[in-house]
Design a protein around this nucleic acid. Structure first.
Length: 796
RNA sequence: GCGGACGUGGCGGAACGGUAGACGCUGGGGACUUAAAAUCCUCUUCCCGAACAAGGGAGUGCGGGUUCAAAUCCCGCCGUCCGCACCA
């Protein structure tokens, strides 16, 4: 709850509202809820800037936004509204967290974070700008903190498999999740150290290319690998290298930008397939401790990163894969050759394909016991600790004697203290004089509360269950929740494709594993809507100008106030930084909710971006007026208008089909056509019926207009309660059809013919056309293709 | 680098392999009006046809292919956008 809705909200919720209202008219039971993802940093930042309590700020925003949503006429079940910052919600979340904790799905681990030494807080990667804290400007440090993790990796395979069941999800999102989980198969194996380093005798590595094992020319370990520590213990230069690697932020972009560097330790390892063969061990800044085993063996000939490393440090670059055995002696050129081929220079593997060789190496490794075929995932466990005040307190107590202890259930919720200050840097919970002090529930000794709060993604990982069922004394009632769930249709931006949607899927599966729910997937249908965009404008000095500060002057744009020229820029997502936002509030005041809703649904397909335009909203407003004029004219008539009735029934069918497929822009186009047809039709009973039906058809999209017209037309009940109109399939077809007549596939004529004309008759009719005869020039056609009631193609 | 999507008039976009450009916006012309706004009618892919019309040609990023018929299917390019990225 930022305080004001933006056009993206309007578009998102308008789509959902159309579906909710449409399904309801069709007789479905519909649950269409709304609530507030209310914890998080914006509230804390506001608290620091404006000296208000985050809760106060949040509740005021919620009130303002609720009012705006109501003005838009969304058919929401406000009786189920809640905010995640309410202890009634986060207390139940704490209960679920403890369920996971007790099931062994939560653990504590040292982990590196971006630490702002001035604000004394952890920064998200996005808050580290050029290696400096976004608020303090201080150089960011990497710091190890003990943090809570959820074992999402336990579910990696399930989460991957489950994607195949999500038929009503965009392919793109499933792919993104698949890549994020990042499954790869390979060989995990050990190198024996030539001489043990401290207590360490082996180094474990993982590879997806076991077939290249004879191409190894070095082994590299992460700077935080135990071997690196062992080397550093006896070698100050190694220690210095490790320290250098650990300076700077942890953000991926920063790591990416770093030069690949290595340090040659005094350690060597023995090749598992040749006891005489020694490989040097490096500490390398590009090896990641938390992927695979934190150590690799380098094959420079067939991996580009290894190639660069080997080139830099003068290591051999042997060829062990070639397009053919006869190319075995050809040296590796300017870059590594990644493509599969045939194993060469590889002892017993020579001549095998990449695939065969890999299988053979795994077989031998398993047989001899120095390695085994394994699967690795890119997915990491989910770190949920945040050193922040405005979040769900993690319901754990730290006792020197008993370790981390769950808060007893009867002491939930662990409520955030209100008397906090943001005057000083750091986490106010941690600084609070009394909040964290308490007795250990196990031993009664002095203990302290966990002062970290949960990532707000935890709050959004189960809210849909709480919408379906919200008892006072439990997170949810299973039967009640399952009556509604899984969510039939979820609508959101593609920015949630990975994190939120993956976390919610994980949370649901975790609850299922604990026997709390039977569903495996939370969201059956997913739709990712496009953004609302607007042109951007810049003044001569490069500063951004908002749309209401500029005006069009012929082909140019000028700054209204100064009259100076303005450069229009790209059409981009509405954002405060580009100043190209359009506030829905004044638009609503000027045009009304229905025009805004109508515009949101018109023109652009919902999955694509929608460019906000004054002309567009004007057009939508005109449509609202047109419908109103039709309904309020008081015109009535007698007699049938068969043609209008056919059009009407076709429109009913087409609008329904379009909404079913979430193709709102097509539904809108159909309704425009219907309105035009009604306007042009002479007065008749059919026309009066068509107006009534039109109102029903627009009701999900323009509910205020529809209700008003409905009442005007004499209805006693609300149109929201009326049934969706049915269509007569017999009226969908005309008894006369237009036949396209082609010669050699090119359109030459169109003919009107009775429906159901047989092939011979259609052919004869087509051949009788002057235009066809002119094209044929007297020659007989070689072939004639007839598609009944559609077209005749004459091949000359 | 890897993965994906998209490319159609002045613009947003329609089009079960079968009449490309529905519908909307913009723009032109006209009606109504003293005038304007609103509204209504009408035209609006490009080129040739001096103008009207008949008529003809080209055309869905580019180049090929399959087919009686391709915006749509296949192959190869080009461009734009998005996601991921030292993942071993």
């Amino acid at each position: 709850p930022s305080g004001r809705i933006h056009m993206g909200h309007v578009r998102n919720y308008t789509m959902g509202d159309v579906i909710a209202r449409y399904r309801r008219m069709q007789g479905h039971e519909v649950l269409h809820p709304m609530g507030w993802d209310a914890f998080g940093m914006p509230a804390e930042n506001a608290a620091m800037e404006r000296k208000v309590h985050p809760g106060e700020w949040t509740r005021a925003n919620i009130d303002a936004m609720r009012g705006q949503l109501k003005r838009l006429g969304f058919a929401l079940d406000w009786s189920r509204e809640f905010a995640t910052c309410d202890p009634k919600y986060y207390g139940q979340e704490q209960a679920l967290f403890l369920d996971l904790f007790e099931a062994g799905l939560v653990y504590r681990k040292e982990s590196e974070v971006n630490w702002d030494p001035v604000d004394m807080t952890v920064l998200a990667n996005e808050q580290v700008i050029d290696g400096k804290g976004w608020r303090s400007g201080a150089p960011v440090e990497r710091r190890k903190l003990s943090q809570w993790f959820l074992k999402i990796t336990d579910f990696a395979e399930e989460l991957l498999d489950g994607l195949t069941t999500l038929d009503d999800w965009p392919e793109k999102v499933r792919l993104m999740q698949e890549n994020w989980i990042g499954k790869s198969r390979g060989l995990q194996f050990r190198f024996e150290l030539a001489e043990s380093a401290g207590a360490i005798r082996q180094v474990e590595v993982f590879t997806t290319r076991p077939d290249t094992i004879f191409g190894a020319s070095f082994v590299a370990v992460a700077p935080d690998h135990p071997i690196a520590a062992a080397a550093a213990a006896q070698d100050t230069k190694a220690a210095a290298f490790i320290a250098e690697c650990q300076r700077g932020g942890t953000s991926l972009a920063e790591i990416e930008a770093q030069e690949k560097k290595g340090y040659r330790t005094s350690i060597d390892v023995v090749h598992p397939l040749d006891g005489e063969w020694r490989l040097p061990v490096y500490i390398a800044n590009f090896v990641l401790m938390d992927y695979g085993t934190g150590a690799i063996f380098g094959v420079p000939g067939h991996d580009q990163r290894d190639f660069e490393f080997a080139s830099k440090y003068g290591l051999p670059i042997p060829r062990v894969v070639a397009a053919g055995v006869d190319l075995a002696t050809k040296p590796i050129g300017e870059e590594a050759e990644k493509a599969p081929g045939v194993a060469v220079n590889s002892s017993f593997l020579d001549g095998m394909t990449t695939e065969q060789a890999a299988a053979e190496v795994i077989r031998r490794a398993e047989q001899a016991g120095w390695g085994k075929g394994t699967v690795q995932y890119r997915l990491r466990d989910w770190g949920v600790s945040r050193q922040r005040y405005w979040g769900t307190p993690i319901p754990i107590i730290h006792c020197a004697k008993c370790g981390p202890v769950a808060v007893p259930r009867d002491q939930l919720p662990v409520v955030l203290p209100d008397d906090i200050d943001f005057e000083n840097p750091g986490n106010p919970l941690d600084r609070h004089p009394t909040w964290k002090q308490l007795a250990c529930p196990k031993c009664g000794g002095a203990a302290t509360r966990e002062t970290d709060t949960l990532d707000t993604f935890v709050d959004s990982s189960w809210y849909f269950i709480r919408f379906a069922s919200q008892p006072a004394d439990a997170p949810f009632d299973r039967a009640e929740a399952e009556a509604w769930l899984p969510v039939a249709q979820y609508i959101g931006g593609v920015e949630h494709a990975i994190l939120h949607l993956l976390y919610a899927r994980f949370w649901t599966r975790a609850l299922q594993r604990l026997g709390k729910v039977s569903m495996t997937e939370p969201f059956q249908g997913l739709f990712t809507q496009g953004m609302v965009t607007h042109e951007t404008y810049r003044a001569g000095d490069g500063s951004w100008l908002s749309p209401d500060e500029v005006r069009r002057d012929g082909d140019d744009w000028v700054h209204i106030e100064s009259g100076r020229p303005v450069t229009p820029g790209r059409i981009e997502k509405m954002s405060k930084s580009r100043r190209n936002t359009v506030d829905p509030e004044p638009i609503l005041a000027k045009y009304g909710a229905d025009a805004v809703r109508w515009f949101m649904l018109s023109d652009s397909p919902p999955e694509r971006d929608l460019e906000w335009s004054e002309a567009g909203i004007e057009g939508a407003s005109r449509f609202v007026q047109r419908v109103w004029r039709l309904a309020s004219s008081g015109e009535d008539g007698t007699g049938q208008d068969a043609e209008l009735e056919r059009k009407l029934h076709r429109a009913i069918a087409a609008v329904g089909e379009a909404i079913d497929g979430l193709q709102f822009n097509k539904a809108v186009a159909q309704l425009y056509e219907l309105v035009s047809a009604i306007e042009k039709a002479k007065l008749s009973a059919s026309r009066a019926k068509a107006v009534r039906t039109l109102i029903l058809l627009i009701a999900p999209m323009a509910p205020h207009l529809a209700e008003e017209c409905w009442a005007l037309l004499g209805a006693k009940a609300m149109i929201a309660e009326a049934p969706w109109p049915a269509f007569d399939a017999a009226l969908l077809v005309d008894d006369r059809v237009t036949l396209a007549v082609q010669v050699n596939g090119k359109l030459r004529d169109t003919l009107t013919a009775p429906r159901g004309l047989d092939r011979a008759a259609a052919e004869a009719l087509a051949l009788a056309s002057d235009k066809v005869q002119r094209q044929l020039g007297g020659a007989a056609p070689r072939k004639v293709i007839v598609v009944p009631d559609r077209l005749v193609n004459i091949v000359a």
